[in-house]
């Protein structure tokens, strides 16, 4: 048994010329499950809740309270909550799905070689990058709406004096670094957890991987939380008309 680590998600099969990777395959099922689940929830919502509804309500209301605690109460929280909460719940579902045991054993022949059927959905950089892009686009749109297009542009391209020009350039780099760090944080953590688990399983199949499994479980929850909260924090920073805009670059 050789250790087969691939940075990219493995292609399972092709529909026409579209490569269907294992992450996209499972992304689709999780997506469908969440969609159908929300329809069912909408239909079965009652004023006097059952057990499942109670749990869902608790999760959503806790998430909403947390959102309000960071961005402040009112319309802002209501506007931004869907994006942040979806990121959290989706990433959490994806991450926890990877901990259903027995997945590593199932492989599929895609014509060229044997590839694993299951792969942690978030360890697909394309998906994470797109989610980050949604966040970044939202941040920029919020910033433009709040501060107006001209002062928004002025933040990055300021020819008043060399220092301000330099700081504006740094801001620009900071925005790009935001994309990189936000996306690679989630991808890196989950992928590293996968690789670590695989390596440990390869080296010592019994008992030794357990602590790493728990660590990975913690990482799965924490990274979902961190991704959503960073989105929230960035948006709340962009939504404030700030004087010290230079200081918030980076992260």
């Amino acid at each position: 048994m050789g250790l087969n680590i691939s940075l990219a998600p493995e292609v399972l099969f092709y529909i026409g010329s579209w490569p269907i990777t294992n992450t996209f395959f499972w992304f689709f099922w999780v997506w469908l499950a969440l969609l159908i689940g929300s329809f069912i929830l909408r239909k079965n919502l009652k004023l006097v809740p059952g057990k499942v509804q109670n749990l869902i309500e608790m999760l959503i209301s806790a998430a909403y309270d947390f959102t309000e605690s960071i961005i402040g109460q009112g319309k802002k929280a209501k506007r931004i909550f869907p994006l942040v909460a979806t990121q959290f719940f989706f990433v959490l579902t994806c991450n926890l799905l990877a901990y259903i045991p027995g997945q590593a054993a199932v492989t599929l022949n895609n014509g060229e070689k044997m590839v694993p059927l299951f792969r942690s959905i978030v360890s697909d950089y394309g998906l994470v990058f797109m989610m980050t892009m949604i966040t970044v686009i939202t941040i920029q749109v919020v910033a433009i709406i709040v501060s107006g297009p001209f002062s928004y542009l002025k933040k990055f391209l300021n020819f008043a004096n060399p220092l301000k020009f330099f700081l504006g350039l740094m801001d620009l780099i900071g925005e790009i670094a935001k994309i990189v760090s936000l996306s690679f944080r989630l991808f890196g953590n989950i992928f590293a957890g996968e690789v670590l688990g695989a390596v440990m399983l390869f080296l010592a199949p019994f008992f030794v991987p357990l602590p790493f499994l728990f660590l990975g479980l913690l990482t799965a929850v924490v990274q979902a939380f961190v991704f959503a909260v960073l989105t929230l924090v960035f948006i709340s920073m962009a939504s404030e008309i700030d004087e010290g805009a230079e200081s918030k670059a980076g992260a």
Binding site: F66, V180, R185, G188, V226, V229, G250, A251
Partner: peptide
């Protein structure tokens, strides 16, 4: 939660190194 967020931001440097 603030601890987790600040740790995540601290992690950025390692992520740059990874990239």
């Amino acid at each position: 939660p603030l601890m987790f967020v600040s740790m995540a931001i601290t992690e950025s440097t390692a992520i740059y190194a990874l990239v």
